[in-house]
Write a protein that binds this DNA or RNA. Structure first.
Lengths: 223, 223
DNA sequence: CTTGGCTAGATTGTCGACATTATTGACGAT
DNA sequence: ATCGTCAATAATGTCGACAATCTAGCCAAG
């Protein structure tokens, strides 16, 4: 299998490396070494770095080079808040536009999520969770909001699995998703937005809890 | 007021030129001529173009150069929807955090808005309107959301004054802003979000109306 | 008169070299 | 021993030149 990368241009490769966790927060990125590793020229790497900076995945300081951006806990919470607002709107839109085939596909994902909960597979559940939300964005037919939400998601990727640590969270999360699905199936815009906002408010609370409990166990670890 | 330019680097200058309307939608941007006009090197111009592309203000096609991005009517409506969702959240946050001095400043802006309505000065009103909203973003203390909303605003700049064309709109807009202010002053988060969402729903409707009536008068003008 | 291919010009993409700026480590003063 | 200063080194910022690519206009064939 030839590692299917969206493209071999430095931008996408770097993006994958950051989002995929190969490059760690605060890690220094020197243009020449990146150019070497990616088999590209320094010019192309520079262009990629500018894009990633604008996208919020790295920070670019004049004459001081690039680092993988470290998203603070506070910032992660902010991102989650924005997601809540936008996904609430997307759910509302999706409720009135979603078609039968998208509903079936959502129902299928939901079923697989239920399996994962029963098997206690948190990682698998988190990934299906992401899929579930993405299907809703697609059904909403709102490129502008989807783009923004997608960008935010990759910034906060480091926190993706944190919420799964809380005991019993997966079970309740599943219930919340079922409520969202029901509202979408009924094409009830108000209910869909409410259900989505409720769900993401819970996620936000859980994230606060996860960050809090992390601070208790490891108070001054770098990271 | 001496048109305060953030810096003389090509990125900010180009940004100002696009947002300020000196460069028109779909206008071709050639690197050499830009470099000449800005007194900068082609390298710096290229970097600026990459940033502006990522920001959505221009489109950059490989080997085909850059153009000022044309925001379609549909896209403008999408942007306004996202703004509504985000500003609703920001108003909610602002309600619980806004201090006395920010409230005074908001009240002051509101007063000047009232003056403009009485004088029938639509342009002046629109600008104060923008100021009013920006003060709320600042009071919300939410950099992530503020950045996104600010970026969206500059993309949709072309539509800024469109809503002012509707007869009687300014008067009702003023009333809506007064409701927002009252909720903020009372530190009522729910009311603030509701008032802001109501307001932006009205703006969205008015924008739909403006676009509609424009299509009636000039059906196939390029643009 | 229209359509298709082709050439000339213009524009972008890439590379290498050099100037400018930060960082690191050694050295000497206190 | 600690701190401040300064040179050596490494990295970034900028420029110019050349290659690759697109665009516009011309010319011939149908």
């Amino acid at each position: 299998m030839t590692d299917r990368v969206p493209a071999d241009d430095p931008y996408h490769e770097l993006r994958e490396a950051i989002v995929g966790g190969q490059l760690h927060p605060n890690e220094r990125l020197t243009e020449t070494s990146l150019a070497e590793r990616l088999g590209a020229g320094r010019t192309a790497v520079r262009a990629a770095l500018v894009r990633l900076d604008q996208e919020g995945l790295i920070t670019l300081e004049r004459n001081r080079g690039a680092r993988v951006r470290h998203i603070s806990d506070a910032e992660a919470l902010e991102i989650e808040e924005v997601r809540a607002a936008l996904e609430g709107m997307l759910a509302r839109r999706a409720a009135s536009r979603i078609g039968a085939s998208d509903l079936r596909s959502l129902h299928d994902v939901l079923g697989r999520m239920r399996d994962r909960v029963e098997q206690g597979d948190s990682i698998g559940y988190s990934e299906l969770n992401a899929t579930f939300h993405q299907r809703i964005w697609a059904a909403a037919g709102h490129p502008t909001a989807s783009r923004i939400v997608g960008s935010l998601k990759s910034q906060a990727i480091r926190f993706q699995y944190q919420t799964a640590l809380r005991p019993g969270r997966a079970q309740r999360s599943l219930t919340e998703h079922e409520a969202i699905f029901a509202a979408l199936k009924a094409h009830d815009a108000d209910a869909a937005e409410t259900a989505m906002r409720n769900h993401l408010a819970e996620v936000l609370d859980t994230l606060r809890w996860a960050i809090e409990s992390q601070h208790k166990t490891a108070r001054w670890l770098p990271g």
